[in-house]
């Protein structure tokens, strides 16, 4: 028997079984999209390593915000904040420097691996941006964000959409997939939500979408309006069923390879940057091998 078949046989016997998920049909709720009467904001962050020198890393973080009103983007409300992070490993913990300077609790990030620093700061900045935005929105506005932030204090209309989830059934299958399978048989051509915990739902935002997502909402009084608005904004055919403002904000906050290369060049090509070339060589071999041998 070929090895691939063996792998799948093992998984199907140990993980996949039709009865492994006991869903409660009452937890499924069908909902309709709702034409938003307020603005829909989306917040997301992106980060990328510009220069990895082994003992220190220079990275870039972008925090993007976009805003839609009546399905149209409000260009004046779209903004991207850019930050540069220097993270150095020392015996007494990480040395962190952020450009431009921001107030941040360094205790947590001082202990983590330096390659994880940028992600921690990005998450902090995203959270800060959401907090800041939630202060000024009206009750009809909705904020969309990627992931989930427990520490969000404000219970305004914030909807967190996770693209992926590690939630699993008893036997270990992905919960999203189990629910999707069940819904295909019993809830056809409808948008649905399935409550999995107090603030968490699995939601299908478009009846024709292949995907459902884990969604976290704090403001449960307004849940149908919120999910209805998100569904209203999930009709773009490029990724049907995924909120388009999140797609847009991902695009503007993403740090692409071209941008990384340009930034790397700018760091090296100034009067203080000469040593960076040799420092970078300390950690660049892996990348070089990738480029030369496996491309």
């Amino acid at each position: 028997m070929k090895i691939h078949q063996k792998i799948m046989e093992f998984i199907s016997k140990n993980v996949y079984s039709k009865n492994e998920f006991e869903f409660k049909i009452d937890n499924f709720k069908i909902f309709k999209d709702v034409e938003s009467i307020g603005n829909v904001y989306a917040v997301d962050g992106g980060c990328g390593v510009l220069c990895d020198c082994g003992s220190y890393i220079i990275s870039k973080i972008k925090i993007g915000v976009t805003c839609y009103e009546n399905m149209k983007r409000v260009s004046s409300s779209e903004k991207v904040d850019e930050y540069y992070v220097f993270a150095q490993k020392t015996d007494s913990g990480n040395v962190i420097k952020i450009f431009p300077e921001i107030e941040i609790n360094e205790n947590e990030i001082k202990k983590c691996k330096i390659e994880e620093v940028q992600n921690e700061i990005r998450r902090y900045l995203e959270w800060k941006k959401i907090e800041e935005l939630s202060e000024k929105i009206t009750s009809n506005d909705v904020i969309l964000a990627d992931g989930f932030f427990e520490k969000i204090k404000n219970e305004h209309n914030i909807v967190f959409v996770c693209k992926t989830s590690r939630l699993r059934s008893k036997s270990g299958r992905p919960l999203l997939s189990c629910l999707n399978d069940v819904s295909k048989e019993s809830i056809k051509n409808e948008k649905w939500m399935y409550k999995i915990s107090e603030n968490e739902y699995i939601v299908k935002f478009h009846e024709k979408s292949r995907f459902c997502y884990k969604v976290s909402v704090k403001n449960l009084n307004n849940i149908e309006y919120l999910l209805g608005v998100v569904a209203y904004y999930s009709k773009d055919p490029e990724i049907i069923g995924y909120p388009y403002p999140l797609l847009r904000v991902d695009k503007i906050a993403r740090i692409r390879n071209d941008e990384k290369k340009t930034e790397n060049r700018k760091l090296k090509n100034n009067k203080f940057g000469k040593f960076l070339v040799s420092d970078e060589d300390a950690a660049i071999m892996h990348e070089l091998l990738d480029k030369r041998m496996y491309r």
Binding site: M71, R73, K235, P237, E238, I240, Y244, R248
Partner: peptide, 25 residues
């Protein structure tokens, strides 16, 4: 800006399944 395959899919979804969609931006 979208790859041709997606564009064809968008048209197909609408033609064959009358999918309710809105082209943002």
């Amino acid at each position: 800006l979208i790859s041709n395959q997606f564009v064809e899919d968008i048209a197909g979804q609408n033609l064959e399944h009358d999918t309710d969609y809105n082209l943002f931006d």
